[in-house]
Computed example of a mutant assay.
Amino acid sequence: MKEFICNPIFGILISLIAFEIGFFIYAKTKLAIFNPLFISIILIITFLTKFNISLENYNKGAQFISFFLGPATVILAVPLYKKIKLLEENALPIIIGITSGSCIGITCIIFMCYLFKLDRPLNISMIPKSVTVPIGVEISKQLGGIPAVTVATIILTGIIGAIIGPFICKCFKIKNKVAIGIAIGTASHAVGTTKAIEIGETEGAMSGLSIGLTGLITVFIAPFIFKIFNTFL
């Protein structure tokens, strides 16, 4: 049994089983709170803690899943390609929306961290909360953050966005499909995009576009905004 736990297959198998259970629960309930990723995280943590299995043993296999996060994001270009004409017609509003959303998101998280007097490393680690894990981790490393905290923040942001994003759009009576997709994708990256795809093809395509552009914009403006806050606060 110990040999199996130390085998990379163990981490992959546990991850897949946990996600399938989470997906089954979500499919049965259709409640956003039962997001498959959220459920699988709880199940894996509970399992590892209950049986006293180290994170190192689990991560021997789980790291391979993490490796494919980047390439897997490319598949989101498929629905975008189908809506290329819509993208051309709304290019300027889309770019402005994603840029302003990214700037506001970064500014808000830095301001809140200063308001609650969090340590500088924690502050930096939370800045790339709205981009995908591969991009967010690199930004965090370059700025001097803690990658583990960054990953946790990104996952939490995505889950919360997927849960409350559609609800907020309904509350503010936002019905434009492009606007909904851009808002969800810019705020909650790939996890939110899975929800946007459920809402509609156009929403999913626009959300997928937002992931790439938000990541690119964050890479350039995050250090600049952080320096401004360091200067005046």
Rank of each mutant, 00 (worst) to 15 (best):
A162E: 03
F232D: 00
E138G: 03
I45P: 05
L31C: 04
T231K: 12
Q142E: 13
S40G: 15
N230L: 15
I14E: 02
A183Q: 13
Q142S: 14
A187D: 01
A162G: 14
S66I: 11
T132R: 09
F111N: 00
A72R: 06
L43H: 10
L69F: 12
E201G: 02
S100A: 13
G97D: 05
I33E: 09
G204Q: 09
I139Y: 04
L43Y: 01
F167S: 14
A179F: 08
K175V: 13
G212M: 13
T29G: 11
I124L: 14
L115Q: 10
T194M: 13
I106C: 01
A91Y: 07
R120T: 15
I182L: 14
L118D: 01
I164C: 15
I65V: 15
I17W: 11
N176S: 03
I174G: 04
L122F: 15
A187T: 15
Y58K: 02
P36M: 12
L86S: 08
A152D: 06
F47L: 14
V178N: 05
A72T: 12
L86M: 08
T194E: 07
E20D: 05
S66E: 14
N230C: 14
F224Q: 13
G181C: 09
G101R: 03
G165K: 04
V137Y: 05
A32L: 10
A77S: 09
I164R: 06
I106D: 04
N176A: 05
G208I: 10
L92W: 11
G144I: 11
I75N: 04
G185A: 00
G11N: 03
I110L: 09
M112G: 05
I41E: 07
I155Y: 04
I44F: 03
T218Y: 07
P134A: 00
I9L: 11
P36V: 14
I221N: 04
G165N: 01
G181Q: 09
S54M: 11
Y58G: 00
K195Y: 01
F111C: 13
I211N: 02
G215C: 09
F38H: 03
S125H: 07
F226Y: 14
I45Y: 07
K2N: 13
F23Q: 09
A18Q: 06
M112E: 00
M206T: 05
I211R: 01
G181D: 06
G145W: 05
I9F: 11
T214F: 02
N59S: 12
L86A: 08
S210L: 00
K129N: 15
N57L: 07
